[in-house]
Amino acid sequence: MQVNLMDFWPRILEATNQTLLMVGISLLAATLIGLPLGIALVVTKDGGLLENKPIFNALSSVVNFFRSIPFIILLVAILPITRFIVGSSIGTAAAVVPLVIFSAPYIARLVESSLLEVKSGVIEAAEAMGATPWQIIARVYIPEALSSIVLNLTIATIGLVGASAMAGFVGGGGLGDLAISYGYQRFETDIMIATVLLLVVIVQITQTIGNVVSKKIRRQ
């Protein structure tokens, strides 16, 4: 087993940066899409604030459609779309597009389940007080569910870290790619161990931050 220390740390560092970048941007974009989508699912649902069967059925079908495609297939299937959006079908930026399309519907479902935890009585009370549907969304649903939404976004983030490992397929780089191409294919076990440890650390830190923030929101 040969260890090239000159090479080792810079590569790890670069891969870590790529992972954090991919996960960070994807999380942000996927939340911007998934959060409103999750809210829309809840309010258009049967008996919801703005009950609307056609819209609910359409949204729900789209979400289910994207959630049923395995990420590795999605990654290659949408290459033309990726090229259209970021101008290239390879590289870190190109990996972000499938990551967003993969996790936005997931986040929508997570947000939906968080919002459904808000007791219907609280919503009813707000309606009885003469609140508009928008006021109920902004001042009741979101603040009441925020702590749970944060925990669910933490789950989505960790899912993204995992999915980003497959980004190597489109030359996205990142820790997962490093582990596969060096650690596995070139038998550099130390690289493999280092990347896996780093991924473990990233996941631990993410979960801890999620727990702390969620707890803090519950008692702001």
């Binding site: 007791k119 009585g121 609280v122 009813e124 009885a128 603040p143 009441e144 702590s147 929101i217 702001q220």
Partner: peptide, 14 residues
Amino acid sequence: IGMIFQHFNLLESK
């Protein structure tokens, strides 16, 4: 028209 409830229905986050 004010209304009160059996399970109070207060905002837990406030």
